[in-house]
Every structure is written in structure tokens, then in C-alpha cells.
Design a protein around this nucleic acid. Structure first.
Lengths: 208, 208, 208, 208
DNA sequence: CATGAATGAGCATTCATTCAT
DNA sequence: GATGAATGAATGCTCATTCAT
């Protein structure tokens, strides 16, 4: 599996199947709780064949997390210092909520990793993630000082967007148990919009 | 170990040590990922001795969850329909945040159980929890219709309090990685207060 | 190990070795008393490898019993209502004794299962076995009423054949301790012949 | 527990309870398969207290076997060389059958020990038991040579009495499964009487 | 006499990984 | 590429036995 070689079709298909099976397993049972048997069955491969594509359980997990981190931070990267402040922030929250809706397993994989103490991505958190958050917090603070959004703690503002949006993926089982069969995301979208608009929009701008 | 008998001192001490060790293990690795060896070592007991107090790994987990559920819902129970609406809701959010600060392992245990699909407490979620939430949502809706707080979806309002407060326990590692050594809870408390005050207080009441 | 697939040579060899080792272990120590370690060692396999062929200790035991039951009842099935009565019964007793000589471990496995209360084959005893015995008892009664053999209780007649023949396998250790090194089966064969001839042959037919 | 001291009432009661519980356990599961927990629960004692009366599992088993062996051979001892031959032998068979009816657990304990290869009483079998059997076989042979009973192999004659009578205790489950609820012993008694009378009584003495 | 507490050894079974083909 | 076969190291749990009181 020389990485310089392009993957054959079978290779691509099997790698994808393994990663999908691994995502299922790791996102619900955590790294230690997931088993290669589960993953192999989900991927429709024998266990030795699975280990032909990834040398170890750890390698599957790492591949998943690495593939995830990029897309996971994309929405925040996209927050544009030159855009309309309220619109930018709300758009960011909506993008994050859409990720919870469209990629709930990825969200739960991430949650599991953090709950376990971030053994694999600890360095990313205190390195690239922290830098990115600090950079965007500076943008937010600039908007606040310019009176474009009301003043609040920019870091906690970001945390609140993470918490609120990821909750609908990570606690999906609980949300659905409480709401019944209703799809939670439409209501969540409206509520989140209302919540952040309230705290962000300067008072005099608020429509009576 | 007849439960009708009062526990001896040794029993009380060892049971507590086991539950604490189990809380450590289960809250970070999940049920499947935690091992009796970890728990026994954390409790300072041999593995067979641990199983002298609890008949199985499952029994420890169940004891933890049962002990947790009661206190977990207490803050919501305490939300008083006859109190001042904004003050009641904010007090609820503060109590929840205090629980994240004082009992972070319990929060992560709960998060892990939900992430795994709530195999043990699924029935509680769609039964007692749902009833409680519906009851309190009715209270909130009453306040909204009376104009005492601004209108929004009461279920999602409750979810948002859960999400925001539990985030500081469940994603503690990430929060601290981003903030550095600063204690997150003081800032979190202020931010949450500001956020919910914004969305709850009727517009005309807001000081200019 | 799809059972529809023919077994490979290795599979056939190892499954046979496991069943033989299991027969040794279960027939002398009973189900609970036998250990996978014994069986694995007798089969020349590691314990996990043994469990690669049979999913559990119970599965080995069940496979043995199922394989046994068929051949166990064959001699009785072969008792022919149209044959010569005395000859048929004596032939049946000889076949049973031959089984004790040639398959003593199987006999002891069966004895152990019965002694333990027949937890696995209880249903067979009160179902198929009872039907078969009742059917052959009816044949015997017919012969008795026709005066072809002397009258006696046909069920106890069958039990006596079981008891006498299986004794030489099940109590082999005792029989040999009492008899010394002599092979017991030649004498047993003669004695059983004489015993049943005495009780079966109509009195007037008996040579003086 | 100085053996020179007489047992207190409590000691006597508890020893008896342990032996009875042990008899239940060992007779159905064998030595290895039985557990001290079973025995302790059956005896209504705690496990450490049980081990106060008997120093080990092995000690209980040995005590049972030793207590058994004496009474086990009594009926054969009682076979009287000076009595009426046929009556003596039939009386022996009846006594043995009565023991199967009245002490089936003891019979099964003995059967289990033999099936396991007689690890504890092997020496008794090839020592005292063999001597006793040889002695009684000599008596039988004397009767045969005197024409008081018909000639047959005296050892196998004794084995046949053991086999037939013990079968009703050892294979009790099977016998009852085949016969239904009927009590087997009345029929067994008649059949055994008929069987041995047939093979023992000199031909000319037989009533037409 | 009796029990609560504790444990080393063992047991059935699982699991990630390796090896040969 | 893929699989059958195999295993060392756990893993949850049992069991006979010991110790302290």
C-alpha cells in the first residue's frame, strides 16, 4: 500500500467501508469499547483483510480523527472578519448545526475522544485549535468594540455555539426521547437563531 | 450484604471507593472500555474483593447511574412555577453549571451513556424525563403567553440550558486547552447569565 | 466455518481432536467438572484456537451429545418385530454390550448427563426415547401374549438390558478392580446370554 | 474439634446438614462440579463456618464416601453361606434395590466417583471390595457345585445385581421420563425377582 | 461458633494481532 | 487481495481457602 500509488477501486471501496464501520463503532462505544470484529462485520470484510488496509485498530481510529479534524474546523475558519458580524456568527452556528444533522457520528466520535481525555488529539486542541479560536475571538472582540455586536466574552460565545449545536448530535437519543418522533433540527435551527440574535444584536437595532 | 442491614464502616468505605473508582473509569472510557482492573486499582482493592461488594461490572455501572439520575434531575424539579420567571430560569441554569463544576465525572458518565445509545437509561429518558420536561415546558409556555418572558420553543430552551452547562464538564479538556489555565466557570457563569437574560427578558423591560 | 461448506482437512482433524478430548474430559468429570484447558491440551490446541472451532464449552458438550444420541438408540431401533423373539432380544443385548466395550467413554458421557439430571437431553428422554421404548415394549408384549417369550414387564425388561450392558462401561473401573486384569467382556457376554435366555424362553422349550 | 470430645448438639446438627448438602451437590455434579457455595447454602451455613466443621471440600467428600462405603457393602456382607441359596440371593437383590429407593443420592455419589475413575476409593475397590466379592463368589460357586442353584459366573452374577438395582437410582431421571409418573420400584422389584429366580432355580424345581 | 472481609489461582471467553497460504 | 488458522494478553467472573474478629 505505497501511498504514492493511486488506490485501486477495490482499495478505495474497502478503505471507505472500514472507515464507515469504524465510525459507527468508535462513535458509540469509544475507542476501547469498539472491537475490530464489529468494524470488520460492518465493513463486510474478514478481520485479517481489514488489517491489510489498516495496520491496527489504532490506525483506523487515527485516520478517522485526522480526516475529521479538517472538516470539523472548517466552519470556524470560514467566519469572515470582513462580513456582517451578526450574519457571520449566525451563519457559523447554522453551519455547525447542519454538521450535527448531517454528520452526527463524526460529532459523537469527537465527543468520545474529548470525554476520554483527548488522548489522540490533545496536542491539536492546545495547538492549532487554540490558535484558531484565539484568532476568531479577536475578530469577535473587534466587532464588539466597534459596537457591531453587543459585548460578551468571545471565547464563551464560541463555546456556546459548539455546545448548542453539537448537543443535537451527541445527545440525539435524549433529544428524540423527549421530543418524540418530531425531527429536532428545524426547531433547533429557529431557536439557535433567536438565541444568538438576542445576545448579539445591539439593543437599539432590535425591532420592537 | 443484605441491603436491609446498615452498612458496616468497612463496607461503606469500600463501596464508596468502588463507586468513585467506577465513576473515574466509566466516565472516561465508557462502560465497555472501562475494566474491573482499573476500578479495583482505583479503589485500592483486589478484583475478587471488589466483586464481593458488587456482583458484576454491570452492577457497579447501574448503581452509579441510579444514584446519579435522582440528583441529575433535581435542579429541573426545583424550577418553580410560582417564582419569578427570569429568575427561576437563570437560577436553574446556574444550578446546572454548578453541577458541571462540582460533579464533572457524573456529567461525563451521563454523556457516555447517552453517546452509547442509552442502553441502561433509555426507558428513563422517554418516561420520567420526558414527563418532567413536558411539565416544565408547560410552565415556560405559560410564562411566555403571559408575556413574562419572550416567546421561544420551551423544549429547545431547556435543551440549550443542558447543552451549555454540561459542555463545561463534558468538554472540559477542550475548554481548558483553549482557555489555558484560567478557570472557565466564572466566565461561563457570566456568559450564560447574559445569554439567557437576552433571550428571555421582554424587550420593553430591557434597560437602554 | 459455514456448515454448508465442506470441512477442510485441518478443520476436520481439529474438530475431531476437540470432540475426542471433550469426550475424555466430560465423560470422566461431567460438564461442570471438565475444563477447556484439559480439552485443549488433549486436542493439542491452544485454548483460543479451540474456541475458534467451537464457540463455547457448551457447544462442544452439545455437539457430543447430539452426535451420541443417534447411535445410542440405534440398537433398540434395530429390534425387529418380525424376527425371532428370543434371538432379537439377545441380539439387542449383545449389540448394547458391544457398544459398552467399543464406546465406553460415550456411555460414561451419557451416564454423567443423566446423573446430573439430564439438563441437556431431558426433553429427548421424555419425548423420542419414551416413544421408542413404548413402541418396542408393545412388540415385546405381543410376543409374550403369543407365548413366544415368557411374560414379564416389558419396560423393566428393557431397563435391565440397559443396566446390565452399560454397567460394564460406566463401572469399568470397579469391574476391573474386582476381576483383576481379566477382560470382563467375554464373561459378561456369556452371562448376559444365559440370564436373558432363562427369563425369556418358554419353560416347555427349555432343554432339560 | 477434638475428635475425642463428644459433639455438641449444634455441632451434630451442622455436620449432618453439611453432609446432606454435600451429598446433594456431589451426587449430581460430581466432585469437581460441586461448589462449596451450593453446599453452604443447602446446609444453611456461611462458607467460612462450613469450613470450620470440615477443613476442606475434599474433607466433606471423603467423609461422605467413608460413611457410605460401610453401609454400601452391608447387604453383600449379609449374604449368608448357611442360608437358603435362592432366598439369600434374592434377599440380597431386594436389599440393594431398597437402598436405591431409599438412598438414591448415595448411589449417585458412588456412581460419580466410579465414573471419575475412583480417585478416592480406588484402593478400596481393589482391596476390601475385591476380597469381599471373591469371598461371596466362592459361596455362590459352592452352591452351584452342590446343585442348589444353576451354574453361572458368580462374579458376573454379583455385577448383574449391582447393575440392575443401582440403575433405578442412578438413571432415575431416565426411568421416570420413560415410565411417566408411575413409581418404578414396585415393578422393578417384581421383575428382578422373576429375572434372578429364572436364572438361579434349578430347572427341575421350576413349577410348570 | 460464626461471620465479614479478603485473595490467589483458575476458568470461560474476548480481542487485537500474526502467520501461512 | 484475501482468508483460514492460530495465539498471547487480557477480561469478567468463580471458587476454595484464609484471616481477623
Amino acid at each position: 500500500m505505497n501511498e504514492a500509488q493511486p488506490l485501486t477501486r477495490i482499495q478505495a471501496r474497502n478503505r471507505a467501508a472500514i472507515l464507515s464501520g469504524g465510525l459507527d463503532a468508535f462513535s458509540s462505544a469509544g475507542f476501547r469499547g469498539a472491537t475490530l470484529d464489529q468494524i470488520a462485520e460492518a465493513a463486510g470484510l474478514s478481520k485479517p483483510n481489514l488489517l491489510y488496509y489498516f495496520p491496527s485498530k489504532d490506525a483506523i481510529y487515527t485516520a478517522l480523527l485526522e480526516g475529521l479534524l479538517e472538516t470539523w474546523l472548517d466552519p470556524l475558519h470560514a467566519l469572515d472578519a470582513d462580513g456582517d458580524p451578526v450574519a457571520e456568527i449566525l451563519a457559523y452556528a447554522h453551519r455547525k448545526l447542519a454538521m450535527s444533522r448531517d454528520f452526527p457520528r463524526e460529532s459523537r466520535l469527537f465527543a468520545n475522544e474529548i470525554l476520554a481525555g483527548a488522548p489522540q488529539i490533545g496536542a491539536v486542541l492546545s495547538g492549532p485549535l487554540r490558535s484558531l479560536v484565539d484568532e476568531k475571538a479577536t475578530v469577535l472582540r473587534g466587532w464588539m468594540e466597534a459596537g457591531q455586536i453587543r459585548a460578551s466574552d468571545p471565547h464563551h460565545l464560541i463555546f456556546s455555539i459548539w455546545a448548542l449545536t453539537q448537543h443535537y448530535a451527541d445527545f440525539d437519543v435524549q433529544v428524540r426521547a423527549v421530543l418524540g418522533e418530531t425531527d429536532p433540527f428545524a426547531g433547533a435551527d429557529r431557536f439557535i437563531d433567536q438565541l444568538f440574535r438576542s445576545v448579539l444584536e445591539p439593543v437599539q437595532d432590535r425591532p420592537l
